[in-house]
């Protein structure tokens, strides 16, 4: 028995130049905010950008982008709708405002389905917002998207970095490119994370201060871009440009 969906995934992604997973291993470190803001920033610089929310059980990028009442177009598959200048795909188009309690095998299946039927066409960047954990979603994108690159998010906390380092060790063991690591929610001076990151041969992309204005900007992309957080992500985005 063969799953026919796997064989078409490469074909579906072939028009995309850079596929970047914003990932951490650790939860609540700012992956979704960074992935969304990064995607918006690149789209505003006239790149063709897609944003794919892979956190199927707890999607949140639609809240950050203020997306409501949208549905993808069906055309020999699914065409992600254009939102704020980017092509946006999320399970919320189908799960609506309800919970989707999924076990690992279901998460894999849903992921394969969406990769097999979504038509991204030509993109300069596809940014993927990853769920927390070093589990199904990470293993699947490593297995299914051979050209995947990671952008790692951590906080200053040793507790966050304890998990983050396990993810980067795993990626380096597999030879998967890591663009760099962002230290988010920085509150006081410390070199700890930067040193730890650089010791592992990973580029330190910069620190993002804890921004008390960020919560208010959620759901409003113009406000979001204007925050200190937004400005810092715009700086970090320079590194991704060709």
């Amino acid at each position: 028995m063969v799953d026919p969906r796997i064989g078409i995934i490469e074909e579906r992604l072939k028009g995309i130049n850079n596929i970047i997973a914003v990932s951490s291993g650790k939860g609540g470190v700012g992956k979704s905010l960074i992935a969304s803001t990064l995607a918006l920033t690149l789209a505003r610089r006239d790149y063709k950008v897609g944003l794919f929310d892979l956190d199927f059980t707890s999607p949140s990028t639609h809240v950050i982008l203020g997306v409501k009442g949208l549905q993808p177009k069906e055309e020999k598959g699914i065409i992600p709708p254009q939102v704020h200048g980017l092509r946006y795909m999320s399970i919320v188009y189908y799960s609506g405002e309800y919970a989707s309690p999924l076990r690992g095998a279901d998460i894999s299946n849903a992921l394969i389905e969406l990769l097999a039927i979504t038509r991204w066409n030509n993109l300069d960047f596809l940014i993927i917002d990853m769920p927390p954990g070093i589990s199904d979603a990470i293993l699947d994108i490593i297995r299914l998207i051979k050209r995947i690159k990671f952008l790692i998010v951590t906080t200053p906390s040793r507790l966050a970095f304890e998990t983050v380092r396990k993810l980067t060790d795993l990626l380096s063991e597999l030879g998967i490119p890591v663009i760099g690591a962002v230290e988010n929610m920085k509150m006081k001076e410390s070199q700890f994370i930067q040193q730890q990151v650089e010791r592992r041969g990973i580029t330190f992309l910069g620190e993002v201060r804890f921004d008390t204005m960020l919560e208010e900007a959620i759901g409003n992309v113009n406000k979001l871009s204007a925050t200190q957080f937004g400005k810092k992500i715009q700086e970090i985005a320079n590194i991704l440009e060709p």
């Binding site: 699914i78 399970i91 189908y94 309800y98 919970a99 309690p101 279901d106 998460i107 389905e113």
Partner: peptide
């Protein structure tokens, strides 16, 4: 579009749980 969405809308008719397994007949 995504058969796993069944977990969002379908419950066990006996106990109300959404934690069910798709034994067969999911997709292609």
């Amino acid at each position: 579009f995504i058969p796993e969405i069944a977990h969002t809308y379908i419950k066990c008719i006996k106990c109300g749980s959404r934690d069910f397994e798709i034994l067969e007949g999911r997709g292609i």
